[in-house]
Design a protein around this nucleic acid. Structure first.
Lengths: 345, 345
DNA sequence: TTGAAAGCGCTAACAA
DNA sequence: TTGTTAGCGCTTTCAA
């Protein structure tokens, strides 16, 4: 094995404690002693064994982040933000993906590598409130995302209903009336899209339009392929919408592909709005209007929540902060604007 | 703190060793004893403390993966593959990003959270051979990516020169002659694109074309924005290529945006080939012809290399396996094909 | 087949 | 200011 405190102590001719003091930057160490010890450390190439420190302290300084999949840029970008936010608190992040499987979500929430994780940030898709209530693992858990839970955990999510209403209102303001919702699910899996769908319904109703359930498209998943297939299905069954509000950007991007492939124009024939503001949505042939959740805020709030509970604060009530979001208007809902903002390229 | 082996032993009225035996599925334990102990474990909700186990065993079962950034889908997709490959060996992956900064790459290579990482997979951009030679950290390191190193470490990378030549040959075969290279760098930073640029030069030369250095475009980075700006700069200085070979897909996507914005058609006016085969390249208005490295193979080879060295095998020679790749031909180099394969949508 | 005891490297209480 | 020592929870000889 490597060099231990004992080796350094021997080399420097002092006690272990003194070396430990130096390593941990303790106050009361004479400069002379400090340099002497430091020299021994350098000569031996000593590196503290964090595992031992963890065992001793009962904490590891590692938090886990579990998202459905990295393949979705939204989660990739979010993961980057979480890593940065955690680094500011001297925490390291262990990232895992659940592949959107309930089984994996359960596994992770029940204790990911027991005792090596101080806390967990989880973005669930299929996990249910009862799963959460049955949780025995004691490490703090912070939830992310658009599912609703009646469980005593911190939960960070933008106001999905309000954001969806903003998106739909934007389309209504552009004169669209037959607005489809793309990316719903059925049965147990309908939860994730639930709030956005509610926003769609509410805003339509508020505008005096009866939501047409024929315009709600169920997809198999949340990727580009699902968007393309879903859009094709919608058009094939003769329901020609004049606008589409997609559950997320990937679905919107897939839908745009189908719309264009069918010889229809965006936004003239069909306008499209997405959700997430992944970087990709700014670079298609037609840039995508979308809801942009404040990812940095989400990451920061999640990490701060966790760190606070980790620091042994008196157990506060579960908090549900609402990070901000913005509606970003781009070409997919702006007739005649195609490439306009790129004129100077 | 939690429940320890001792607590379980006490409860079951046996020794610590016996409980340990049960927990670790040792051979020689009487069924009766096993059930008795198991019951105590269940009653107490015992979970082994992995930190303690790690300290004792000197290994943690955690490997680190450091990539430039998750924002690039190539690395996000690769990270997913690495996590899966590692899971098959019962390793957990700690993911970090270096933001493409040499400083961070150095930090990471020198020992990421000393002793909590059994090994490291690093995809460097700016790290130099001498940095690697100066490395003191003893945890095994496996390198990823298109930089070349004269250092005794395993290095997993596809044959970048051959792949680049395939890409350029494809363009030549389509009749293109003025083929630009987009995404070069200058000075210390020119290494990453080096091999692909060499492939570009070699293949042109082999076709009897003198590589025109005016068609080599330097970019500030490797993102979509850089591709868009670089392409604009190329067109602005009056160099109108009939094809572009981009360092990666993101640059290619940015370039396509600029080409279209300038009113030029892809591939009729300018054909485009990328590198990486990120999923996004299959969904633009014009799908992107690209080199598709076998990400699963890369991830598997990297993890296998690491695991082998971790298992204390006699120290083999540094290995440089060559995972496979494929040239995937899509619309951006196929005149008249736009949306062809989506007809049935 | 099971038990007793040492020790992985570190921190923290207590002593000097 | 520095040294001594116990012990975090586990695995692992060595005995029984």
């Amino acid at each position: 094995m490597g060099v231990s405190l004992k080796d350094v102590a021997q080399r420097a001719g002092v006690s272990i404690k003194t070396v430990s003091n130096v390593v941990n930057n303790y106050q009361h160490v004479t400069p002379a002693m400090r340099t002497k010890v430091q020299q021994a450390i350098d000569e031996l190439g000593y590196r503290p064994n964090l595992t031992a420190r963890h065992l001793r302290k009962g904490r590891t300084g590692i938090i886990a982040l579990a998202v459905p999949e990295f393949g979705n840029p939204y989660f990739a970008e979010l993961a980057g933000a979480v890593v940065d936010a955690a680094a500011r608190h001297d925490y390291t992040v262990l990232v895992d993906h659940t592949a959107g499987l309930r089984e994996n979500e359960l596994l992770v929430s029940q204790g990911f590598r027991s005792h090596v994780i101080d806390g967990l940030i989880l973005s669930p898709i299929h996990l249910e409130t009862e799963d959460l209530m049955a949780r025995t693992e004691t490490a703090p858990l912070v939830l992310l995302g658009e599912r609703e839970y009646e469980a005593p955990y911190d939960h960070i999510a933008i106001d999905n209903v309000a954001a969806a209403r903003d998106a739909v209102r934007h389309l209504l303001g552009r004169g669209h009336r037959r607005i489809a919702f793309l990316g719903s699910r059925t049965g147990r899996e309908r939860q994730p899209a639930h709030l956005r769908l509610r926003g769609w319904r509410e805003e339509l109703a508020a505008a005096g339009i009866t939501p047409d359930e024929n315009l709600v498209v169920v997809t198999d998943g949340y990727g580009r392929e699902d968007g393309a297939t879903g859009m094709a299905a919608l058009l094939d069954r003769g329901e020609r919408p004049d606008a589409v509000f997609a559950y997320n950007d990937l679905i919107a991007i897939g839908a745009m592909r189908t719309i264009t492939a069918r010889g229809l124009r965006i936004p003239d024939d069909i306008a499209v709005v997405g959700f997430d503001d992944i970087e990709e949505s700014r670079y298609g042939a037609t840039t995508l209007t979308t809801i942009a959740p404040d990812k940095e805020a989400i990451a920061r709030l999640a990490v701060d929540s966790l760190v606070e509970r980790l620091s042994g604060q008196p157990v506060a009530e579960p908090r549900k902060p609402r990070p901000g979001y913005r509606l970003i208007i781009r070409e997919s809902t702006t007739p005649g604007s195609a490439h306009a903002h790129l004129k100077d390229l």
